[in-house]
Nucleic acid binder design. Sequence first.
DNA 1: CCCTTTAATAGTCTCTACGACTATAAAGAG
DNA 2: CTCTTTATAGTCGTAGAGACTATTAAAGGG
Lengths: 252, 252
Amino acid sequence: MRGYDKHAFEPFAVTVDLAVLTLRAGALHVLLVERGQEPYAGRWALPGGFLLPEESAETAARRELAEETGLADVTGLHLEQLRTYSEPGRDPRMRVVSVAFAALLPDPPQNSVRGDTHPAALEPHGGGDAADARWVPYDAAQGLAFDHDRILADARDRVGAKLEYTCLATAFCPAEFTLGELQQVYETVWGTALDRPNFRRKVLATTGFVEPVQGAARLTGGRGKPAALYRAGPATTLHPPLLRTPREGRPA
Amino acid sequence: MRGYDKHAFEPFAVTVDLAVLTLRAGALHVLLVERGQEPYAGRWALPGGFLLPEESAETAARRELAEETGLADVTGLHLEQLRTYSEPGRDPRMRVVSVAFAALLPDPPQNSVRGDTHPAALEPHGGGDAADARWVPYDAAQGLAFDHDRILADARDRVGAKLEYTCLATAFCPAEFTLGELQQVYETVWGTALDRPNFRRKVLATTGFVEPVQGAARLTGGRGKPAALYRAGPATTLHPPLLRTPREGRPA
DNA sequence: CCCTTTAATAGTCTCTACGACTATAAAGAG
DNA sequence: CTCTTTATAGTCGTAGAGACTATTAAAGGG
């Protein structure tokens, strides 16, 4: 920030990388694109792209998110800046500084990602080096291009930590959800089982976390007693937090 | 991250900005530099500078920190990446993307910052547009250059939040400290008073937070009963957290 | 030297929150 | 209907935190 009108400075390429996370079939999934060209041709990578001259990293991230997921309304999705990765050599060709984001969204319809239906019809953007786009289970997302393994792991760590003291979990849920679905978010991201009555008590005792949906407040569909529906409340932080205790959980 | 070998991309200037925080005389202080030239000439700003071609943002931040504070050992200091600020127009002259850091250090000796003793002898670096460097009480650090007010506020928020669930507070303390000093860290950053016996019980009950210093374990100096000395323990996170409850505190 | 002041440390009491657990209700499958 | 499955209600015991009192060990003032 100082002296750059008197001295030369190094120009950098600035990109955004997105760890787009969702829950599908009880497992954490991440949206990956397959690289079509070198370096790392054929390898999977996090979606992302360059900042345009007149947009912020947040704006670029939301634009890329819309392009990659094909979702119309990315305005309501939770987008969170993780950190910036700037190690020299993280891109073998040039100096690239990348601002990483985590995006959380409810399990989208199967065809909402273009790559799921027409891999070849993926609209090429930012150069068209993406051959495919696909939701991949988190545990299967290994060996990604560049330092994306690290970014993805950091994203999961951050999300897991923020579940404890923020209302972030509702970002994985649709507009109306059951407490069982909300509990599955915690169990899936943390990888631990939670006691259902205690989870219920805790969530309902936290003012502003969720609020009941009046009217057709019951959802059937599966077996068992229908669950009441809730929507996200006005709170953003949890007081007191919903702590992930190392010893918690019961064996299914 | 995609396609930049086929398409033009915008080059950006990348800088680091540092919110260097310490506690002095019972108040949170931040290290500011006075800008010597336009824009914002004469205004105070956070220290910072450009990334060199072969260094990461973390390396650049630590280098700037050493240069600005004049401290010999910046290796042990707590340096934490906050977030990256990339809004177009945040620098009136050009497009600058800045990676912001928070640095925490114990109250340094009065002469450790060059600007405190020889303002004119401040070694110019990155262009020499810093006319002075000074520790400023947090509440007096208003109207900073660029978007540094926002960065500084974000730094304080982050530090305050991390005091709850990490051992970050010891980063403000010298190698050996009393529990009273540790409590002052919390009280100063949070702006609330804490009950001393309860604070003591909580800290000592958290394994790995602090460990007693054997031998000359007592520090006198002021009035009252001498306090036992402690050093930072091996833990990095607090289980359970030391929560900042809205209602906590007693009126002095 | 005694007494006050100051600060550190020890301990008590109470209430809340949470983990563990049991019981009941409401649906579908057979 | 009966069994299974899932949601919901409630109970019990304990750990931890807030509020508070008491004791100890120093400095300072007369």
